[in-house]
Design a protein around this nucleic acid. Structure first.
Lengths: 326, 326
DNA sequence: ATGAAAGCGCTAACAG
DNA sequence: CTGTTAGCGCTTTCAT
């Protein structure tokens, strides 16, 4: 079924069918009705591939995540998909899998689709990838991070400042012997740096840092806290690089009969859906995932519709949510 | 940059460029080298949209999930994306959001891309949607479920049998006063039915069933178990419809000082990554998500390459993983 | 092994 | 408000 079939049935030209579908306000009411009737009768579904080729607007947005199953990025992807979907854009999914190697191959495959935008979620781009992106001329949104030199547009928050603030939070509650359990990705490292900087400024001893391979899990949280306690048994405040890690740390404390927050304060990162109902409820850092996704979507849509994007760097910030674990 | 630019630089015709990219074995070595050199110099990235329009193969596969953030389907999507990616297929993501209403609109948007296949994950299709799918002629894979009347191809397992087996498992361990906490989606209902059938057959009292709205979460698990205990305080074995629910139930037991598995046995469903490291480690039902994803990918690829799919119904089964919670 | 011509299904551009 | 013409970038088909 093509425009030709519909046009024949409706007794109009093919361009009228196209207009009835895309810009119905340009078609008179009776004609519109005839065309719509013909569409319903023929079961015609417009071929967006063909339309996209001619109009140079694919209404496709590529989203790249390191991994879906980590759970960290799914909420961003979800709100991105929803926000774009309401404007008739679809999301093309790419998984780079934490290695910069496969990333370039992935990028080519995605650029080959001529998407109207590419959303990079928490990715470290190689020079090569950066250049390919730039050369493609496709609008690019980087997310989950903040830098003064984005490829194009960026929406995220400062991981360094976040780490700093979490340390201050623990210090303000009287904690002095601090520790960190986190993944070994770059963003976690930035948070850790901020955390350690605040500790140094306050003059407390340097935090004991325990890194586990990303993506983080409950199990790695248990093992990470156990390893941390091995090296610094007197630790009284721990910052976990994700809520999954924090949940694991909580479990390890339960098993070892370490009181939380009595003996040990625990702060997570992410405020995922289970954090509030853990026992004890987890003090953590909330990120507005939804806003990240929606902002990225808006960036792309604005560009696609030819609107200039005034503010290319958006800081969504974060909030420390105080519950009982710290 | 188009084939024309590359052809001009390489001093060949455009079709030779196309062949150098897609079927290099049809091009002589020296020509191939000249073309590849020209591609590298021009930074040409083939336009797959244009190619797909002409060849009628989009190398695009649409995947529909109710919701990403539930966490249940992400692993399937992940392995599907990976398996398809290694054959140069990309995944177009669609979220139907548990309502059959938006599903039809989504379906049209996806069909409009003329994907080489559509993978439905755990979806209940309306008649309308079923017909559209059938009319489109696009290969369809249903997953996460089993029926004798699939739209086209299907890979999943029997939820009813699974529930039956879990009940038998609890009965074999001496549990007689059974309960269920589960989501209210159709697949959960099937598991519950199987569970209750086994209970009836064994002659024990009918299980107390507590339904919570899908998607399931830790918090709903806590609340669900609390509600269940209200109605049946003497319950000694509970089947939770997801590991998230089971984890919540475990937390609720911790808070109420109910011994697990001493006072109460708990069985989850899904065997997600945190289940083994909970305290106590969770007895649960393992589904081979990866195999579901890979089988679905293979179905689509076989069809796309014109191979006949011999066995259109694949049962991946499940395994009850015995840990300490039951 | 290479090329010329045609056309996939649609929409931009320009009439009328 | 409606139609005609041309062409998006590629691959199919048929030739050589």
């Amino acid at each position: 079924m093509t425009v030709h079939d519909v046009a024949r049935v409706a007794g109009v030209s093919i361009i009228t069918v196209s207009r009835a579908v895309n810009t119905p306000e340009q078609v008179s009411a009776p004609t519109l009705e005839r065309v719509r009737d013909a569409i319903a009768r023929t079961g015609y579904v417009p071929n967006l591939i063909a339309g996209g080729l001619r109009s140079r607007r694919s209404r496709l947005v590529a989203a790249v995540v390191p991994s879906l199953s980590g759970g960290v990025f799914t909420e961003t992807i979800e709100s991105l998909t929803l926000a774009l979907g309401s404007h008739d854009y679809q999301v093309l999914l790419g998984q780079s899998g934490f290695t910069p190697a496969g990333e370039d191959a992935l990028l080519d495959a995605l650029i080959g689709r001529r998407p109207d935008g590419i959303v990079l979620t928490g990715i470290m781009h190689s020079h090569e990838g950066r250049n390919r992106l730039l050369a493609s001329g496709i609008p690019v949104v980087e997310t989950w991070d903040l830098t003064s030199t984005p490829i194009d547009m960026i929406v995220g928050f400062s991981h360094e400042r976040l780490g700093f603030d979490v340390c201050d939070f623990l210090l303000a509650r009287g904690r002095r012997r601090l520790g960190i359990v986190s993944g070994n990705d770059d963003r976690a490292r930035q948070r850790n740096e901020g955390f350690c900087r605040a500790a140094a400024r306050a003059g407390v001893r340097a935090p004991q840092v325990e890194l586990v391979p990303s993506p983080t899990t409950h199990e790695k949280g248990r093992a990470g806290l156990a390893a941390l306690l091995e090296k610094a048994p007197d630790v009284d405040g721990v910052f976990c690089g994700s809520d999954a890690l924090a949940m694991g740390a909580l479990t390890e404390c339960l098993v070892r009969s370490i009181g939380v927050p009595g003996d040990l304060s625990i702060v997570g990162h992410g405020d995922v859906n289970f954090s509030a109902s853990l026992h004890p409820p987890l003090t953590t850092v909330r990120i507005d995932y939804d806003r990240i996704g929606r902002t990225a979507a808006q960036f792309i849509i604005d560009r696609a519709e030819g609107r200039a994007v005034e503010n290319r760097i958006v800081d969504v910030g974060y909030t420390i949510v105080t519950r009982q674990s710290a």
